[in-house]
Write a protein that binds this DNA or RNA. Structure first.
Lengths: 143, 143
DNA sequence: TTAAAATTAGGAATAATTCTTAAAAATATA
DNA sequence: TATATTTTTAAGAATTATTCCTAATTTTAA
């Protein structure tokens, strides 16, 4: 565990959102100006291999990294590109049965139009059902 | 619809597996030696935007393209890299409820060790339960 | 405290993809 | 059908994301 790796891990834990390698590099050099971009990539790769963080390959854009290790999917707005977390109950246990993995790692990204962009598109006014669904909790029965 | 685009669509439909842009380019130039790599990329992007084909971003490797439009996930072997299709019943309808999309497009890739690599690793011998799942209707070998 | 092993900074190299431009092809119009 | 307009193409330069290389530095082990 080097100072560089500790810094990268801390940035990701406190970010509160999904950062790209480049964003992590820019944040890291604020407190450690000598850090190299290759160091950021190498440590991100190693930590992902060790399961200390998750790689997420969201549609189109560059790879992002997530310190939240609990299984979840991602919603990608096709209008503004915003990335949201999404609970997918039961998916992990279904995949565990299919693959024989104890804790299967998956990457799920779903294309949608986020509530803000949907309202802008539809001219505002009516509240649509998407907001309620997104803020509520769904159950996913796969059996 | 140009000759180039028709060729690309036909290659993907008859491939029987998930091709990268580079593989599609190599196959295309056999019957149309003048085709340019940029043309392949542009048409793949346009066709994906139109929903005529699916982009799949499997862990690590380059983007692959899939003419199979029915919703399904992908299994990626972490040892040999082989890519298999995988049925995920109910996921599409769950995502439809969450996102408000009629036919939500998703990209699901799951990290596992395929049956062949698992046997090689464990020294062969015992049939494991993964094989049964794999040979059943859950998954089919595509790559 | 010193030796060995691992990691770093810095930059070159690579891979995948997009962009640019003039020419060719496709489509619309007369 | 001939011609004008629009779209798409080929070719390759440019860009973006990422990995690789090397000597120097840092970390770990003895």
């Amino acid at each position: 565990m080097t100072r560089q790796r500790a810094l990268i891990a801390q940035i990701l834990r406190t970010a509160g959102r999904h950062l790209t390698a480049e964003e992590i590099f820019q944040l890291a050099r604020r407190s450690m100006p000598s850090i190299a971009v290759g160091t950021v990539y190498r440590n991100l790769r190693l930590m992902a291999e060790d399961g200390e963080l998750r790689r997420i390959e969201a549609a189109g854009g560059p790879v992002r990294y997530d310190a939240n290790l609990s299984p979840h999917g991602h919603l990608v707005c096709r209008v503004c590109g915003k990335l949201d977390d999404m609970a997918v109950p039961c998916l992990a246990s279904y995949l565990s049965r299919c693959t024989g993995e104890d804790a299967p790692r998956y990457d799920l990204s779903v294309d949608w139009v986020c509530p803000a962009c949907r309202r802008a598109r539809e001219g505002g006014g009516e509240r649509d059902s998407v907001d309620q669904l997104h803020n509520g909790s769904q159950t996913y029965n796969i059996d």
